[in-house]
């Protein structure tokens, strides 16, 4: 086994363990942290594919931002585990059916007859000065510029929608305007009163 293979199997093993942890652990926080581990191992495998930009972006976006917010929400939930398990036996047949359907779809798409070294040849190794980031940037802003722009507009719409959903002015809330606070001068607020001392 070459060094590369050892690294691949270590990362893949961690990835599978993490993925199992996501669905198997009883505590939702543990599940979320297992998902973080899975992302991390995935980025290790992607590094082996010389896709360092994608690998680091996976950690940056999913581990660094998305999962933090996920954890944020999960930590504040008070999940009643026993109540959630009540319907377990009742929904088991439906669950098994859906799981089987998903498995079938996945085997059809990513089954061994579609992947493997005999179907897709091993990608050629690049030289040491190959820059994945540069290549991606070039492709993204030339060949795929329209899909890229459309994707960014869709994301922008999603941002606007999310803000619009939560934005509401409550009349009872007091807001402060820092610009106004900074502009306050002594003359606006302070009145110096000169008067003679009181006589006894």
């Amino acid at each position: 086994m070459s060094f590369l293979e050892i690294v691949f199997y270590v990362f893949s093993g961690v990835m599978i363990l993490g993925a199992v942890g996501v669905i198997a652990s009883r505590n939702p926080v543990h599940s979320a942290l297992s998902l973080v581990l899975t992302f991390f191992a995935t980025s290790g495998v992607w590094l082996l594919l010389e896709a360092e930009f994608l690998a680091i972006t996976l950690v940056l976006v999913y581990v660094g931002a998305v999962m933090v917010l996920f954890l944020f929400v999960v930590m504040m939930l008070d999940i009643n585990v026993t109540k959630m398990r009540e319907g377990f036996m009742r929904f088991l047949p439906v669950g098994i059916l859906i799981a089987l359907l998903l498995l079938m779809q996945m085997v059809l798409v990513v089954g061994p007859e579609n992947f493997g070294l005999d179907v897709i040849a091993e990608p050629a190794r690049h030289a040491a000065d190959y820059n994945n980031t540069k290549q991606l940037g070039k492709v993204l802003y030339t060949d795929y510029v329209y899909p890229f722009e459309i994707a960014s507009v869709i994301l922008l719409v999603a941002i606007v929608a999310a803000i619009a959903l939560t934005m509401r002015r409550r009349p009872e809330t007091k807001y402060q305007t820092p610009a106004k606070q900074i502009m306050v001068k002594k003359e606006d607020r302070l009145r110096i009163v000169k008067m003679d001392a009181e006589k006894k």
């Binding site: 680091i56 972006t57 930590m75």
Partner: peptide, 23 residues
């Protein structure tokens, strides 16, 4: 050659210590 991204990714990881400790 992706050092800046690597730094950004790792500094964003640091928050896990804080969140996990708090929880």
């Amino acid at each position: 050659n992706a050092a800046l991204l690597y730094i950004l990714a790792l500094t964003s990881m640091g928050v896990y210590g804080v969140i996990v400790a708090g929880w």
